[in-house]
């Protein structure tokens, strides 16, 4: 018997399958299937340059974080990035996004863009340091082509510049 996807049993121990849910939602709306990005081949592997306790971490979050005073992201395939200083508390960090519940993250942006927590983990000695600039971007982009051709190269250029300046040894990616 066919069961509407919104009546599926929920297993508390199994991750929510957002791909299956989106497929079912689009199908029910009569839309063609959403084309998720796929990479079936083995990803490239770059060893960690040092233990985490000796590594500077660059934070990159796609939850739509921007700093008050910066232009906010729009919701129609915004492939821009925002540079957010990490030395100050996250008081002036805002979030905007069309595809997740913004209420909790607007209470505390650290839950999608954990700059304060990373600074504390530097103090604890868990990580060696935090790159002075974090990168905010918009994870809701429907064009995989524009993500690959516009957003990804911009992030890579920023992170490699941080590496070359001795500011970052590893990138922490927090997608939303």
């Amino acid at each position: 018997m066919w069961v509407p996807w919104h009546h599926w049993a929920v297993d508390a121990s199994t991750p929510v399958d957002y791909i299956a849910l989106t497929r079912a939602q689009y199908d029910e709306l009569g839309y063609p299937p959403y084309l998720w990005a796929e990479r079936p081949d083995t990803p490239p592997w770059t060893p960690l340059r040092a233990p985490m306790a000796e590594s500077n971490v660059a934070l990159i979050g796609s939850g739509g974080a921007y700093l008050s005073g910066q232009v906010a992201f729009h919701w129609n395939d915004d492939t821009g990035i925002r540079r957010i200083p990490t030395s100050e508390p996250a008081t002036d960090i805002r979030v905007t996004h069309f595809a997740y519940d913004l209420v909790p993250a607007r209470e505390d942006p650290n839950i999608v863009f954990p700059v304060d927590r990373l600074r504390e983990l530097v103090d604890e000695g868990v990580i060696g340091g935090l790159a002075p600039t974090a990168i905010g971007c918009m994870g809701g982009i429907y064009s995989a082509r524009r993500t690959v051709e516009e957003l990804a190269p911009a992030i890579v250029a920023e992170v490699l510049a941080m590496r070359d300046a001795g500011e970052a040894d590893v990138a922490l990616l927090v997608p939303v």
Binding site: P15, R49, A171
Partner: peptide, 20 residues
């Protein structure tokens, strides 16, 4: 540059297959 991905969306992350 090594990367570490922190995700709450298992199926989407598995589909794009990041290194870590």
């Amino acid at each position: 540059m090594p990367t570490i991905c922190l995700t709450a969306a298992y199926s989407i992350t598995a589909s794009v297959n990041p290194p870590r």
